[in-house]
Design a protein around this nucleic acid. Structure first.
Lengths: 150, 150
DNA sequence: GTAATTGCTAAACCTAACTTTAGGTCAAGG
DNA sequence: CCTTGACCTAAAGTTAGGTTTAGCAATTAC
């Protein structure tokens, strides 16, 4: 783990990710390591932060393609500065706000529905919250759902 | 679609669900139709509301096993009343509150992080929000340190 | 009475985000 | 030098929540 880059194992230890996950992220274009003479992956220290970003973005509900799109907005050719990361992070803010908004509206609707106990397709407001689509940002299937395997 | 129950196609039309989804829900124990002489499924009108509940609960991020657990709390042997449904719906309220809470805390943390642009594993507060567990349901993926195999 | 729907089951397929496995290669310590 | 552990690739497996397909039976429409 000298000056010529970190091995995949080093990076896994630094980030807490599984080695297999890191390889998968490479396949998805989230990181782009070089290879040493023997064909093994070598990562720069900046990749630690890059993977940190990936993990945080995932917590916020972004998909890997979406995260990749964000990462692609980082300057190519030089190591991203704190300011670069901060700029990208503001994008999270809007997504979070939207998500909180939708959930809050849902809760309010639910409040007005608990009294009636209708849950009826024709009349219940829960079927017409207006912007259920706002929740789609989280994913098509596991829409806000618990993780698979729970 | 006479007095002897609705066919699966009728139920699909009433709920907007796909026929295949209804059969899947039966396999998951969410509904329990009887069969007619020819072996075809027959559903009661109460199943329309039952499936409505399933759909709403899914929007709220519950998994099918969780929804099944809620449904199992309905009185067995009689058609559930509005009061029964209302009682169950209050359970949603707590779950939604928790989810909104967690997201709000995340947003606040993010706000304090945007300025520093750190995203550093050792120091960034985003890695220590305190109750990431409450977020189960926000992301499509396993949470950090919560992988099935690890 | 027969043709067109609709329904039946079992099994395979789908996506996202990974993990596991199989079979081999590279690198570091003694 | 040799062994052990880390690494490599490709492919298959996993989970949730379904959909699709194949081949056949029941119902409904005319």
């Amino acid at each position: 783990m000298a000056k010529d880059g970190l091995s995949i194992g080093d990076l896994a230890a630094r980030t807490g990710l599984a080695v297999s996950a890191i390889r998968y992220y490479e396949a998805q274009g989230l990181i782009d390591p070089w290879r040493n003479a023997g064909g093994q992956r070598r990562f720069s220290r900046a990749d630690i932060r890059r993977l940190s970003f990936v993990m945080i973005a995932q917590q916020f509900g972004f998909t890997l393609p979406q995260i990749r799109a964000e990462l692609d907005r980082l300057p190519k050719g030089r190591v991203p500065t704190k300011a670069d990361w901060a700029r990208i992070s503001t994008g999270f803010r809007a997504a979070l706000d939207a998500r909180i908004d939708t959930l809050t509206r849902m809760r309010d609707t639910l409040d007005s529905c608990i009294g009636c106990g209708c849950l009826s397709l024709e009349s219940c407001a829960l079927y017409n919250p207006g912007d259920r689509a706002g929740l789609k940002g989280v994913g098509p299937r596991y829409l806000m759902g618990d993780r698979p395997g729970a």
